[in-house]
Design a protein around this nucleic acid. Structure first.
Lengths: 147, 147
DNA sequence: CGGACTTTCTTGAATGATTCAAGAACGCGG
DNA sequence: CCGCGTTCTTGAATCATTCAAGAAAGTCCG
């Protein structure tokens, strides 16, 4: 579980103090892409022992603010975190099981960044969320929610 | 204020029973695009008198399921509803004040619907959220966040 | 290397949107 | 006008996230 040896480097590079909880949280996000806060808390506790959920929430906020992790939150889902930052990629979310997968922008660069009518907004990011069914849920007979 | 006379028609067209709460909620969504649940509750009570929040939540779910309204929920925001459905449009969200505006897809049809690598997902919708600063917040020096 | 200052972690409780449950009221088809 | 089934009311519960205050730890400096 020496997950990422450069976790410390990353923290220092972001001018953040290096504490055990922070290293563990960052490593957990690297190891479990798209994990929700609760999963991260579990992963952190598995490697460090008891850690307060408050500390994890606090660390996640600090890491997000520092740009080391990205927070995503599809409608109807709790907050999730991922370590891929800086590159322009989006997500596919399964309507049935909530699974999330990364998707690189189809049109390379940042095409969607140019809205037809921006209403005077100064747009700095375009976030795309694809909705559908994951492979597992497509083959399996629709679970509940029939009409 | 009988906002939209065809509210009943819309409800019947969706095979939904026409009740006063439903008509009021639907009218409220038409009148207040991108309003959150609490605002809708307020608007409904302004026209009908006391109505339980539970009823509004229930109605909003029914209307959403029927496709009469669309539910949107940008990260860090509560659920919001809008009446524009069926057309392929997206949203710009102000990072400062949370204001939301409609934006028609820059590339006309549904370009983004084709992800570069869909990971086997059966994609049926591409939702785009633009993030930036609204005109008011761009000109005004960052308003601390007091409220 | 040690001390002091600042940031971060712990503990415990609160907030707030949304949902669940059970019974009463109402809309709709007959 | 009646009865059935859906929908509204009331009241409480859930759960992610946040707030607050004090203890502990990290970093900088001499």
């Amino acid at each position: 579980m020496h997950t990422s040896p450069d976790v410390e480097t990353a923290l220092r590079g972001a001018s953040l103090r290096v504490t055990r909880p922070r290293a563990a949280v960052l490593a957990a996000v690297y190891d479990h892409p798209h994990a929700d806060t609760d999963s991260i808390i579990g992963a952190v506790r598995a490697s460090l022992g008891e850690v307060s959920h408050q500390a994890v929430y606090d660390v996640l906020r600090a890491l997000t603010a520092a740009g080391l992790v990205r927070r995503i939150q599809p409608s109807g889902s709790v907050a999730r975190y991922e370590s891929r930052v800086g590159d322009n990629h989006h997500h596919v979310v399964c309507r049935s099981c909530g699974a999330i997968a990364d998707v690189d922008c189809a049109v390379a660069s940042t095409p969607c960044l140019t809205a037809s009518d921006d209403h005077g907004f100064a747009i700095d990011e375009a976030e795309v969320t694809y909705w559908g069914q994951c492979p597992a849920c497509s083959t399996t007979p629709a679970p509940a929610r029939s009409s």
